[in-house]
Design a protein around this nucleic acid. Structure first.
Lengths: 189, 189
DNA sequence: GCCTCATAGTCAAATTGTTGAATAATCAGA
DNA sequence: TCTGATTATTCAACAATTTGACTATGAGGC
């Protein structure tokens, strides 16, 4: 049950509604954890039942009311317990890599296209992380912020996401180029 | 059902038993897909039932008999169909990143230790990928191999794994160092 | 007025993945 | 000869994730 901890970690940095969390998990936290909206709502319900978060109704005009959640002391304790337990190895599952692994026996064209799409979405994420990091840093340069700033956790995970997307983008582009090159030379041979 | 395609892709490069696949999925293919042994045996049974692979019994002396599997024409066709379908975005789930995200409210010591452990396992994987790539390349240098070699799919995914582990290692080490530094300066302040 | 998009959330079913426990054979070393 | 590691596989229970459908309200564009 680790989605639980991802949600608790996200709630450390403020109050969020289920809907807002879906946005965060869609892109920001998606860096290290993805979850579908249905999962988040269900998990928030369970967390509230276990008194690890508390919800309160926010009445809005002009749009539907929402429930926002805050982490409780018990929730923080649970997060601390989790942090001292040994970390599971990173779980990674990638369709596209499976296709590249098999590319010798496939038509390379669709794989090349998908590599380029992946590179493009990586570029979008890169820009997002850069912007987020600028916002988190405020006026400080990165070095000073990391040494003296408050709240570096989210910054550090953004850095990890940034590096990941950067290397993803490079690998996708060079791999796509290479497969194109080979497809051309095969035709001419 | 994507484990299915990962298994088919792995079987492109030869005959494997369930047990051998668990080894591959433990480290080599784990690069882009992880699966528990139980999952693999179950999936192989289903694949055989669907005629996407064929199994045959291999009688061994000195150790238990085994069943080895080969991809069929139908299996290859299924893999080709899969390759042209749009790729799902990479799924990534990382406990350790969740902990780092929350580190401002946690005791940093255990997180630092876990970062260093992760860096060490990344170093092991790096060595493994380097060795695998050397084996795949044979006598050729990387450039020539990639341009002219046969069977570059597994090499390309090894490259991806190599890059991933390299950046993981760097991030873990610099992050651990930084958290150590901050822990020290906090104490002295 | 109608269509679509964004906000805000829920329900159920089906599929996948994880955990724990078993079985069974052989080999290497104390 | 006992112990533990490696090879080889299976079963069952449980937890987590994915997919698809569904209900609302309000805003903006045509």
């Amino acid at each position: 049950m680790a989605l639980r901890h991802a949600v608790l970690a996200a709630l450390l940095h403020g109050e969020y509604s289920g809907y807002q969390l879906t946005k965060v998990f869609d892109v920001g936290v998606a860096n290290f954890w993805y979850a579908a909206p249905q999962q988040l709502y269900a998990e928030l319900t369970r967390l509230e039942h276990d008194d690890l978060v508390t919800g309160r109704e926010v009445v809005q005009q002009n749009r539907p009311n929402k429930r926002v959640f805050t982490i409780t002391d018990d929730g923080l304790a649970e997060l601390r317990r989790f942090a001292t337990a040994p970390a599971k190895p990173l779980a990674l599952r990638d369709d596209l890599a499976v296709k590249v692994h098999a590319v010798d026996r496939l038509d390379p064209e669709p794989v090349i296209e998908q590599l380029e799409e992946r590179a493009a979405t990586a570029a979008v994420k890169l820009a997002f992380y850069e912007r987020t990091m600028r916002d988190l840093r405020g006026d400080l340069d990165e070095r000073s912020f990391l040494r003296q700033g408050r709240g570096i956790g989210p910054y550090l995970t953004c850095q990890a996401g940034h590096r990941l997307e950067q290397q993803t983008r490079e690998w996708c582009l060079t791999t796509a180029d290479l497969l194109r090159l080979r497809a051309r030379t095969e035709k001419t041979v």
